[in-house]
């Protein structure tokens, strides 16, 4: 009855590239961040207020964290850590906005209505067939969510993890030199450790966000699951929504914590490889 899919669903095709719902939401969160950055940047004030003070608070938090990890040298990694944090937290929070996951594009009206989907508005946009014949055709769903939390897709989180690892090692080579950097890998097991960091980075974020989405889906439809009646009617919807409220709050918390953990891990892994002048004089 509950449709849970690990893969993001394909909405349509741009050229030969499938556009998935997770991709769309990721773009949306990037767009949101760009707009916020422009608004804060244009209305810059010496005495911050409102949005600017929140952004500055986040900045100062990461600055102190980077300084704890790498001294004054660490300041140059604040934008990196903050970018990871802001992107992940905005995508995670977008994932619990009403409509994300529940707003669907209908492909097969008859099946969708029998599954309890209420159609409204303009006729649904059909996902067009892939332009080239050899491109694999996904199994046709009766309906697909238009939006899906960006990090509820393993592709997004693995991409973030690979970006993080490449930057960590590039900065290690740049600050310590190639020979000094390679000296970390005298033990071949270290290479395995570094590769597995990509997996743990990616799976931790994906697992947390995806599990959160499943949790919200299950809690929201708890009444329907327990009574066994598929009732899209208002009372069931309201009860389901009320049951889900505490879990929405939990997800908001988890979303922020996971973003924080990701940024913090990037900073602490950076401090393992980056050679700072300060650390040389300290030890």
């Amino acid at each position: 009855m509950l449709e849970i899919s690990i893969k993001p669903e394909v909405l349509g095709y741009i050229g030969a590239f499938p556009l998935t719902n997770a991709q769309l939401t990721s773009w949306l969160s990037s767009l949101l961040l760009i707009v916020v950055a422009i608004v804060v940047g244009v209305n810059y004030k010496k005495l911050p207020s409102g949005l600017q003070s929140i952004i500055e608070m986040v900045y100062e938090f990461f600055q102190s964290m980077a300084e704890d990890a790498m001294g004054a040298f660490g300041r140059r990694f604040v934008p990196l850590a903050m970018t990871f944090f802001l992107f992940i937290v905005v995508s995670n929070w977008l994932g619990v906005v009403p409509g994300v996951g529940s707003l669907v594009s209908i492909h097969d009206p008859a099946k969708a209505v029998s599954a309890g989907i209420i159609p409204f508005g303009a006729p649904a946009v059909m996902a067009e067939a892939p332009p080239s014949a050899d491109a694999t055709v996904e199994e046709q769903h009766a309906y697909v969510p238009v939006f899906r939390g960006g990090n509820a897709d393993l592709n997004t989180t693995l991409a973030l993890a690979i970006i993080a690892q490449v930057i960590i090692h590039a900065m290690g080579i740049r600050t310590a030199g190639l020979a000094h950097h390679l000296a970390h890998f005298k033990n071949p097991l270290e290479i395995v450790t570094e590769l597995s960091k990509i997996l743990t980075f990616g799976f931790r974020l994906f697992g947390n966000v995806f599990a959160g989405e499943v949790l919200l889906t299950v809690m929201g439809s708890l009444v329907v699951v327990l009574t066994g009646k598929l009732a899209p009617a208002l009372p069931f919807g309201l009860v389901g929504g009320a049951i889900a409220i505490p879990f929405v709050m939990l997800e908001l918390f988890v979303g922020a914590i996971q973003a924080l953990v990701f940024a913090m891990l990037v900073l602490s892994f950076l401090s393992l490889f980056v050679k700072t002048d300060q650390s040389a004089s300290h030890h």
Binding site: I4, I6, F203, I257, Q258
Partner: peptide, 27 residues
Amino acid sequence: RTLMILGIAFAESIAIFALVIAFIAFS
């Protein structure tokens, strides 16, 4: 607190791996 959250994140990711395996088994 910072170190605790980091440590918990590491421990928790083991459970998350199990969860991903569970979802894969389910799907």
